[in-house]
């Protein structure tokens, strides 16, 4: 298979991806296009990326366009990634929202599921402190491929060793061939939904806490603003937003306010965050 890809094809693919996901693919990402799109081209029966692009130009096929988009989304994640947001969720957010009978959490780009499973495990660990509080997690991602993996809850030895304490592996997983599967009770406690962050999230419901980490970095400023304001529209007035450590709302939107000294944690409204 021909492995070279022209700048024109990279630009065309970047347009396809931008239009569908908001993801910005700069011109220097030819190597990424090559490594991620070659398998798609092969699977779809094309001799090269160039042949795939030629076919997409000749006859726009949405299924093919989405296969290309899906392949270029980044799914890097692991259990309890970055640790601090989970500590903040336990130590700041849960006490602040203690009165809730149901705590509605949205993992807005859940990838292969480690983030929502981490939250579900965390809640199991502290549920004695919050009797009567039920955790309702909605986990969404643009990629149905990664959502399928998330929902299956099947992780390799490598995946369960990145961030997951061994005691949690024993408590919340069961062996499955040469891997480990999340136990059914935990798997079934999460609602999995395919969702594009460029769409209106009201179809998913309303939430007290939203995790949208390490996603905005891939969007241009107007898209960041649109996504954040849409998230705000479904977040409770006293709700919280978690962003990645390298992301911020500053200069993008006033819909969320940074919580002082709590990097990555934002409140919907500064006036109702006394407990935080």
């Amino acid at each position: 298979m021909n492995s070279t890809v022209t700048e024109a094809s990279v630009s065309f693919i970047a347009e396809v991806v931008l239009k569908r996901s908001g993801l910005i693919l700069s011109a220097d990402k030819g190597y990424l296009v090559e490594s991620r799109i070659n398998p798609v081209a092969r699977k779809e029966g094309f001799a090269s990326i160039e042949a795939l692009v030629a076919a997409m130009r000749a006859r726009p096929d949405e299924k093919l366009m989405w296969a290309v988009t899906d392949a270029l989304t980044t799914n890097e994640t692991f259990f309890f990634r970055d640790k601090t947001p989970f500590d903040q969720f336990r130590d700041e957010v849960l006490p602040a929202l203690k009165g809730r009978s149901t705590l509605r959490v949205w993992c807005a780009a859940c990838s292969t599921g480690q983030e929502p499973y981490s939250l579900a495990m965390l809640m199991e660990e502290v549920k004695g402190t919050y009797p009567g509080m039920k955790l309702d997690i909605c986990a969404s991602d643009i990629s149905e491929r990664v959502l399928e993996k998330a929902q299956a809850g099947l992780y390799s030895k490598f995946e369960v060793q990145r961030g997951l304490p061994i005691t949690h592996l024993v408590k919340y997983f069961e062996p499955a061939e040469d891997a480990f599967r999340v136990k059914p009770a935990l798997r079934q406690s999460i609602r999995w939904r395919p969702f594009n962050l460029l769409d209106d999230p009201r179809v998913l419901g309303r939430f007290d806490v939203v995790f949208c980490r390490n996603v905005l970095i891939y969007f241009d400023p107007p898209t960041k603003q649109k996504v954040l304001e849409r998230i705000a529209s479904v977040t409770a007035p006293d709700g919280f937003l978690f962003l990645g450590a390298a992301e911020t709302v500053m200069g993008v939107t006033d819909a969320f306010k940074a919580i002082p000294a709590k990097r990555g944690l934002y409140g919907r409204d500064a006036g109702v965050r006394k407990a935080a």
């Binding site: 030895k157 060793q161 990145r162 592996l169």
Partner: peptide, 15 residues
């Protein structure tokens, strides 16, 4: 803690 072989530097550091 418990590391399952094969391991790499990331796993040892994480554990």
């Amino acid at each position: 803690e418990y590391v399952m072989k094969p391991f790499d530097g990331d796993i040892i550091e994480a554990k």
